[in-house]
Design a protein around this nucleic acid. Sequence first.
DNA 1: CCATTAAGGTGGACATGTCAACGAAAAGGT
DNA 2: ACCTTTTCGTTGACATGTCCACCTTAATGG
Lengths: 166, 166
Amino acid sequence: MTAQRDKTKLDSDGFDLSLLLPFQITQLSTKLAAQARAILARHGSLTLPQWRIIRVIAMGLTNRSTAVRKSSGIDKSQFSKTINALIDEGYVTTVPCSEDQRQFEVVLTEKALAAHARLAPELEARQQHLLSALTQEQRDMIFPAIHALARAAETIEFLNAQNTED
Amino acid sequence: MTAQRDKTKLDSDGFDLSLLLPFQITQLSTKLAAQARAILARHGSLTLPQWRIIRVIAMGLTNRSTAVRKSSGIDKSQFSKTINALIDEGYVTTVPCSEDQRQFEVVLTEKALAAHARLAPELEARQQHLLSALTQEQRDMIFPAIHALARAAETIEFLNAQNTED
DNA sequence: CCATTAAGGTGGACATGTCAACGAAAAGGT
DNA sequence: ACCTTTTCGTTGACATGTCCACCTTAATGG
């Protein structure tokens, strides 16, 4: 586990924080969000969480509230508020869920479908633009790597084992 | 306890959002931030942005305000507020910068150094824990891949060629 | 020199994200 | 059936992040 400090070149204005994996990913995530917001702002006033919800529903695999919420990766609280905002702005309507009275089904309006039709190609072009910045090898490896890191990020129990044994 | 089914394509309750790179990275970033906050909460009340600033300064490469701010990857506004919070809580002091009167130098107090000494090993262990979740191949390629994506995320000009109006 | 522009920091307004508590509905166990 | 536990959505409080207008200082160019 030697330090890969082969980077004599300082990155931006700072220095070699390139070694810090969580930091790099956070920075990348911030830039990706800004890029997505810039694209959304071109064609309307949808916010990023609003778009995420619409996109998930537009995929047509589910429109049950819990499934949409989990698929969009949004917190319960924020999901509730974002759905209400979407309703207020006429993007979705809700229908009581027959099988589970706690949940509801989300239905996209024409407005949402039109917004999706406009935005989806641009976001898809963005995805391709991003992928084209990677080599084939990197493309093959990035998704498993992200998944592995996500699982490793879900617990801090590795600290307990180390601290108590040392 | 939710069943952690070993499905490679269907992640949680949703479906194949595993193909959406920005979404995956955002989710990962969220989990990493939560993990870091959990570690910080164990040993004090430093917030994540506060820790980022202290860590950068503790590296000793610079303590000029602009360099610290850019190295920590924090917005101007949030940096100003976070620095003030650090001052109020006794973690840092500031000194006018002789070379540039607009800037200032940030000096860590004993309290910050002590917090850094406590936290740095745990965060380092976390970093190693994360890296150990990756194969050697993935470790070698993840940093260049992140960097490539970060650059590709800095612009939306790839859309201009396709859609110049609006 | 002075005027203009750029860069740095501050503060307010606002959007987004996180957390805890609550009541309603479903699921499980006896 | 009944009671308990879990899941779900909502709400409010709060932390974090973003954006913009403003002022000061530095750098640039007559």
